[in-house]
């Protein structure tokens, strides 16, 4: 609680914010990368995230174990993903419409079942202190890294390797790029897509559990400020690459910490403007990275938005 570090507080807070705030973005967008690589879009992940936050908090409170909560959130997310995947496999069903329906269903169910869990205090997920080398409490606080963040980072690398080097990755990419080619290879596209969507749902559920069990670490109905929706957009921003999704999530977390950090060092005018930083940043990066020839480079061709 001592030591005035002046303007250094801003970059430090942004690093800390990147680590603290990015994890939900990271999990949701990694899951959605896999789902979209198989040729489906699941817009319902916002609902899955909120339901995962509720389910995780509720189970952690009831069992006294935060990890049981994470498991429950993943399972709940898996079920939501399965529902989306199965419904979209029916003929003439639009994945975007189902996604929106599931988003409303997920938040509605979470609010309904979550009522008794707003008040109780559930155990938090453990964090690892990577700031032990510093005497500054600010540095120590910024580098209190949650295990899930590290898991997410490792998962990004693993998924990138999986997509590029393994048979599962190849299957996913074939299904995502051409249903016909997949069928010719003896792959059933619908089944792959159902599994990919279920996987994406499970990761989104874990992202929700991070919100309610670590940061900010409590369940209430305003827990998500649209992280699930933003993360779906991040996937396009990340050009369907898990590694890019990791950096996009970090960038969003850091930009989100800018507003409070600037106010804390005395830059107090125009904070509404700073709070828009993540979105302004997205626009700038999208404009800079756009090109006339291949605006959707890397997009799976079976996606309903590219078809």
């Amino acid at each position: 609680m001592n030591g005035d570090i002046g303007l250094w507080a801003v970059p430090l807070a942004m690093i800390g914010g990147a680590i603290r705030v990015s994890t939900p973005f990271l999990f949701v967008s990694l899951g959605e990368v896999i789902t979209e690589r198989s040729g489906r879009i699941n817009l319902g992940l916002e609902g899955t995230l909120v339901f995962g936050a509720m389910a995780g908090y509720a189970l952690a409170y009831l069992t006294g174990s935060a990890w049981a909560g994470v498991g429950a959130a993943a399972l709940a997310g898996l079920l939501f993903g399965l529902v989306h995947g199965l419904l979209c496999s029916l003929p003439k069903v639009n994945d975007i419409a189902i996604g929106i329906a599931l988003m409303l269903l997920g938040t509605g169910l979470a609010f309904f079942f979550g009522k008794p869990f707003i008040q109780p205090v559930a155990p938090d997920l453990p964090a690892i202190n990577l700031g032990w080398w510093s005497d500054l409490p600010q540095v120590q606080a910024a580098l209190r890294v949650n295990v899930l963040f590290l898991v997410g980072a490792a998962l990004a690398v693993a998924l990138a390797w999986m997509l590029r080097k393994t048979r599962i990755g190849l299957t996913l990419r074939v299904v995502g790029d051409s249903s016909d080619a997949a069928r010719a290879l003896g792959i059933r596209p619908a089944r792959v897509r159902i599994l990919a969507t279920a996987f994406g749902g499970a990761l989104a559920g874990i992202g929700g559990a991070y919100l309610s069990l670590f940061y900010p670490g409590s369940w209430n109905e305003g827990i998500s400020s649209g992280q699930g929706l933003i993360a779906v957009a991040l996937v396009i921003f990340a050009r369907w690459s898990p590694i890019n999704a990791f950096f996009a999530a970090l960038l969003f977390g850091a930009a989100g910490a800018l507003g409070p950090a600037l106010q804390s060092v005395g830059v107090t005018q125009g904070y509404y403007l700073f709070y828009a930083a993540p979105f302004v940043l997205t626009l700038i990066v999208l404009v800079l990275s756009s090109s006339k020839s291949g605006a959707l480079t890397g997009a799976p061709r079976e996606l309903s938005i590219t078809k």
Partner: peptide, 22 residues
């Protein structure tokens, strides 16, 4: 100021920023 009556992540960030500022 967080700009919203209820915005959990921003409130947590603001609280951390205050603690960082001493």
């Amino acid at each position: 100021f967080t700009g919203e009556w209820s915005m959990a992540v921003k409130e947590a960030e603001a609280t951390n920023a205050l603690a960082d500022a001493g």
